[in-house]
Design a protein around this nucleic acid. Structure first.
Lengths: 107, 107
DNA sequence: CAAATTGTTCGCAAATTTACGAACGATATG
DNA sequence: CATATCGTTCGTAAATTTGCGAACAATTTG
């Protein structure tokens, strides 16, 4: 029972947690593929109620992976590119740190 | 309320979920850096009780990211390299799929 | 055999997550 | 003004997660 967690561990865990549900992965993939889109488009893609979609979007927004913007009467969502890049690098670094040689992994 | 999730979305979500806690990230980093080690070594690294460590290890094992092996009287844990590689590729693919040009992201 | 070491499992409590329908606010339309 | 559309928020229920200490099993040591 010693050390605390590093800020980087907390950060990547936050990103990972946000990605830790199929609905949220589906949302992220959908957004990543097409610049931006509206809530309704996302809802159509998913097998869950709109209230639940809204909740998942909030979590992704809180994690910093997406951002939303009101475009009356709709709401437009898109990837938060800056944080997406941050996450991308964090995960790449994480998976690249293995100590057993680059041949069998991370290649 | 339409489509279901793809197998790949489910898989990456499973990996991400397992990584979605700082303690589990710390465990993975610790293991990735040093081939293998014993339960006690992992426990020493973390600010949580052994029962909780054991639980986190079980989740990582269930997700396929690590594997354990009894080496009486200790238990040796290490990264599951095959699945680590699978995960590495899945995440790389995921973050690389953005549609807004490679210059501003994923580079 | 008694005692110590190592880690898992059990039982429990508190917090969080997931999901839904209903109600709601805001704006546009008839 | 009444209606329809769009999406969030509220309230609730069920399931899962997180964490701990105590008990436990298996082996080794005295």
């Amino acid at each position: 029972m010693n050390k605390e967690y590093t800020a980087e561990q907390e950060q990547i865990a936050r990103f990972a947690k946000a990605m830790g549900h199929p609905a949220r992965m589906a949302i992220l993939e959908f957004l990543a593929k097409q610049e931006c889109c509206f809530f309704g488009d996302i809802h159509e893609e998913l097998p869950i109620a709109k209230a639940t979609v809204s909740q998942h979007l909030k979590e992704l927004k809180d994690a910093g992976l997406i951002q939303g913007e009101i475009e009356t009467p709709k709401v437009k969502y898109c990837i938060n590119r800056e944080n997406w890049e941050t996450a991308s690098k964090l995960f790449a670094k994480f998976f690249g740190q293995c100590a057993w040689g680059k041949k069998t992994c991370c290649g």
